[in-house]
């Protein structure tokens, strides 16, 4: 794994969401949300259930087309681009429900994640020259390395449906990492982990920054993990921005406490 150049796009943030709004029929799921993720940053997106976090994720990655607003990635407008087109620019995401290819082994899952690096013409597929064979070898080596980085080496050849919940979470991240993201977006990566596992997971995430990915955007409910890992936190409530700031500010923000715990606690 090579270190990524911490190239700054002329002071531009890596990802910028402006005025994102999503309406389903009469219901406004997300309303005028705007935030950005800079190079080298780990940003958390939190909020109570139904706050619109996953909807935001889906708009940022092209799975939903926002009703209003724009998404910029590396300075380019990617609003309403197809999901795979956005992925090809280096914005890779994971999904909330355990989303791996269940019948494939851990290694095969991660190898599949290397798709973009190994793209080739059909002719090269049928009559692979030395270049293609080398790319294939490198993809296999890299896949093995990613599996090890995520601490799954022991389970390399186990089919994904036999993994434990914690291992599945690691595998999801491994598949996403295999696609060599610039910005990695994880949707509840620690769901189903106990607090000890979550802490270890958080440590693993921190080691990725600057080495494997430039930035991270995380949706997560586990506050310990979020507070421990994130540089900056964006809070959503009922589809709207409630607060934005460093973990400490967010912890001390009465509005956030109210959103999570109800008025009495505020």
């Amino acid at each position: 794994m090579t270190a990524l150049p911490t190239q700054r796009h002329g002071g531009e943030p890596l990802l910028r969401a402006e005025n994102l709004t999503m309406r389903f029929g009469g219901i406004t799921a997300v309303k005028q949300v705007g935030f950005s993720v800079g190079p080298g940053e780990i940003v958390g997106l939190i909020g109570p259930n139904g706050a619109g976090k996953t909807t935001c994720f889906n708009m940022l990655t092209g799975f939903y087309t926002p009703t209003e607003g724009r998404v910029f990635f590396k300075g380019a407008d990617v609003t309403s681009h197809k999901p795979h087109a956005i992925a090809r620019l280096g914005l890779i995401r994971s999904f909330q429900k355990t989303n791996v290819m269940k019948r494939l082994t851990v290694f095969e899952n991660v190898l599949t994640g290397h798709y973009l690096e190994g793209r080739q013409s059909l002719l090269a597929t049928f009559f692979p020259g030395e270049r293609v064979r080398r790319a294939e070898r490198e993809a296999r080596e890299s896949a093995a390395a990613v599996v090890e980085t995520m601490g799954l080496a022991r389970r390399m050849n186990a089919p994904a449906h036999l993994l434990s919940c914690g291992e599945l979470r690691l595998l999801e991240v491994a598949v996403a990492l295999a696609a060599k993201p610039t910005l990695l977006m994880l949707d509840e990566p620690a769901a189903g982990l106990n607090s000890h596992e979550a802490l270890l997971f958080g440590e693993t995430l921190k080691t990725l920054i600057g080495k494997v990915v430039q930035s991270l955007l995380i949706v997560e409910h586990n506050m310990e993990l979020v507070m421990g890992v994130c540089d900056r936190i964006v809070v959503l409530n009922f589809g709207q921005m409630l607060a934005e700031g460093e973990p400490r500010e967010i912890l001390n923000n009465p509005k956030v406490a109210e959103a999570y715990l109800g008025k009495a606690a505020a």
Partner: peptide, 16 residues
Amino acid sequence: VAVRENRYVAQSIGVN
């Protein structure tokens, strides 16, 4: 195979 197994994951790793 990725598309067959899981369309969303396939898209998220850049497969059309």
